[in-house]
Design a protein around this nucleic acid. Structure first.
Lengths: 209, 209
DNA sequence: ATAAGATTGTGCCAAGATTCACAAAGAGGC
DNA sequence: GCCTCTTTGTGAATCTTGGCACAATCTTAT
């Protein structure tokens, strides 16, 4: 039914940046903001800003700019942040524990509703109000708690195996922190955050003097 | 003197992926690998793989493929991983502490040689063998320990201010985990990892059914 | 009303990245 | 030595993304 707009992936990635800038601007009490100001605050070209926003509708007013609060809410809706998302964290090691404690996730629309591990010493613990379940219960708990996102913080050796369990449990999206190349069926969304490769991109450039 | 090859940034980002795949393949004892196999394991088009690798030299042998161990070392050298890098972690909160404990960094060529914070309760502590210094000592310790990379895990409110201190201390590269838009002078390298925006990219797609 | 000033939305082109497709080069069998 | 098979390296074609530049639209002042 929709006119099939074909939004570039790069545009979607930038929406988060705009959202961050809007929150910042909103706190300073400004009511409207122009694409030029937005460009300065985000480091993105102003024509790019206008084009990105125009993909989703005509949000601006010529001669004035964009109404901060209204556009912030529009972007939130586009990103699906006008509702809550239930998140599971799989792998309660160092990184997993830190993310459990990291209030950044819980703060907005992401509810960490369950954690999973295979280590009997960790199962049944409660960390920051989140219960740790046996990974064997993943499918059952996913249904019960309506989990829609899985954050993978398992060791590299277990990553592909656990990814398969996530797919079987019908969780439709994975954010993978394990430094492994995962293969999932089309239909499952997958994103990869690799701390080491971020550092490597920096050392590459440092290495070129 | 070099013929100025102009490597696309996207290519550099993929080198880390190839490196990961090579380590995996090497462990399974295979001596050579073709661009088609590499493509399957990495999810990247085989012509892309060949072109990426060809930017840096003629590493393959026609009819055979690429020699795994040799090419792995070549890529490591290109990324600057044939030598060690001294890393400082700034901001010893939940996420910072987790990264200190995360052996993934130390494992390869990244030596976490110092941590910094402004909280007197944390200063002088030692976590995982890494001493926590007062942020006021950043310039001094940077010189002493030859720090080349800074990982920023400070609260958003302090991020820009701390980034300025890092620049003043002449650390040439920053990996920023704070969900803030930092501005640094050209000459300082900056990369940004935002966990929330990664999740948002997923909810956007989930939201489109 | 009208004019001056600001700022959006977008057509168009340039730059960049990806993929195709094929000649060149090596391997291996006979 | 020659034929077949494999696989690289790369020119050309295609697709994607970015940025300029300007007409269209709105605001405000007089």
């Amino acid at each position: 039914m929709t006119p099939k707009p074909k939004i570039p992936v790069t545009t979607v990635n930038r929406l988060s940046t705009y959202l961050r800038v809007f929150s910042q601007v909103e706190n300073s009490g400004v009511a409207t903001v122009s694409s030029r100001e937005l460009a300065e605050l985000s480091g993105i070209n102003s024509a790019q800003v206008r084009k990105d926003l125009a993909y989703f509708g005509q949000f601006g007013r010529r001669g004035v700019g964009y109404e901060v609060t209204s556009l912030k809410n529009q972007i939130r809706a586009i990103l699906g942040l006008d509702r809550d998302w239930n998140v599971a964290l799989i792998g309660v090691g160092h990184l997993g524990t830190a993310l459990l404690q990291y209030r950044g996730f819980g703060a907005y629309n992401f509810n960490l509703v369950a954690a999973f591990d295979s280590d009997p010493d960790k199962i049944s613990w409660e960390l920051e109000g989140v219960r740790v379940y046996d990974i064997k219960e993943l499918t059952k708990i996913t249904k019960e708690k309506k989990i829609q996102l899985a954050i993978l913080t398992v060791p590299i050796s277990a990553a592909q195996e656990v990814a398969q369990l996530v797919v079987q449990a019908k969780i439709p999206a994975i954010l993978n922190f394990a430094p492994a190349q995962l293969s999932v069926p089309t239909g499952t969304l997958l994103r990869h955050v690799d701390l080491t490769s971020e550092l490597e991109a920096l050392t590459y450039q440092l290495n070129q003097h």
